[in-house]
Design a protein around this nucleic acid. Structure first.
Lengths: 205, 205
DNA sequence: CAGATTTCGTAATGACCGTTATTAAACCGC
DNA sequence: GCGGTTTAATAACGGTCATTACGAAATCTG
């Protein structure tokens, strides 16, 4: 019983997500959010809780709707294909929307006042979870012989995540998709392989 | 004539720099700055101007005092040494101070409200200037035969900057110096070379 | 239709934001 | 020591922040 909700909760969350994506947590005001969602302030509060809870909802949705290529990537047969899939899908995501380039997660992770420390920590934790999944996939690749026995899955995972994070920064700095693809190509040029003999150092033309 | 200044302008700017380094531009309040500098608000205003001008002063000082390894790196004889010097000095800088890990520039570049857009643009411009210097150095290396004729200096420069920015993010996420060194090692494993035959793909052990 | 319940929209809350009058104190040349 | 000048410190400014009472409107059950 009671009055029905007049706005679409999913659509409102999508609008909120885009604003946070562009400006980060503290860079976004509640007025920004209500204007983007087309919903009055108390309505957003009753639907999602306070600003921090709303950001958490947006973060969940970001992983569900935009980072859903990660599970797909992890299922690729070889570690090289996993890496390539993650790189090129990240580039697409980081440059697809001119209004909010880069990565939602990384954008909010770096700066913030002391009050926003819980939010930063939340982003740090989620990021670490993603890297752990990738590392475990590389450990499997090593066990399967897809990576050489000398390979270090943890270092390799950290390395590729560094490239991904760096591209998120560069996308925010206005880099084109083409430039980022050149970055990815360079990163993949050094990817280790167990079977084939590699000549990665001169693979760029 | 007139009353003498009772605080050390240089020391105040150093203190201010550290706070901005940790929290970014908007994450830092003027109260944070005056408390760190041990200087009352009007004194900071009279010495540096408003918050944006103060941040610009801090950015200048950051490049003078902490990124002074970049000119040294660019003077190394080979492009590989240039890259290695930049990577390992960046790691040291990004992990040296537990109170403000990562990179001052990258920390403030990603997020911010619309009011802070000029500051973000300032950081984007300075970052681009650094990458341009590196790219020009790689073009010289190519002309000198230090890099193969097939090398693409712009892509190579963007790639290494991506790794550097990614490490700045990871430092902010709590990565240890050792982990970042493994990342740098992986990044260098693929660095192109004109003379020696390369087997970068299996160079990790 | 009556009563209970939920949402909506206005408007207000106290706290903090960056910035600056204003007044008192310290220094200079004379 | 005195007038002119610069700095120091207190305290205030209007504006925006996130958050929420409160009363009107809308929907359900009975």
């Amino acid at each position: 019983m009671g009055r029905h909700r007049e706005f679409d909760v999913e659509k409102a969350l999508d609008a909120v997500l885009c604003v946070f994506w562009s400006k980060g947590y503290e860079g976004t005001s509640y007025t920004d959010l209500t204007e983007a969602a087309g919903v009055e302030r108390p309505a957003l509060y009753s639907a999602f809780g306070n600003k921090e809870a709303l950001f958490a909802h947006a973060l969940d949705r970001y992983y569900e709707r935009y980072l859903n290529y990660i599970p797909d990537a992890l299922h690729k047969p070889t570690s090289r294909e996993v890496a390539a899939h993650m790189l090129y899908n990240a580039i697409d995501l980081n440059t697809r929307y001119p209004k909010h380039t880069g990565c939602f997660n990384i954008t909010g992770l770096l700066a913030g006042s002391d009050d926003a420390e819980p939010v930063r920590q939340m982003l740090i934790d989620v990021r670490a979870r993603g890297e752990a999944l990738f590392r475990e996939r590389l450990e499997r690749a090593k066990a399967e012989g897809d990576l050489p026995a000398t390979a270090k899955p943890d270092a390799l995972a950290a390395y590729l995540m560094a490239v991904l994070h760096g591209m998120a920064v560069q996308a925010k700095a206005g880099f084109s998709r083409e430039t980022l693809e050149a970055v990815a190509e360079q990163a993949l040029a050094t990817w280790p392989s167990s079977s084939t003999s590699v000549s990665a150092g001169s693979s760029q033309d």
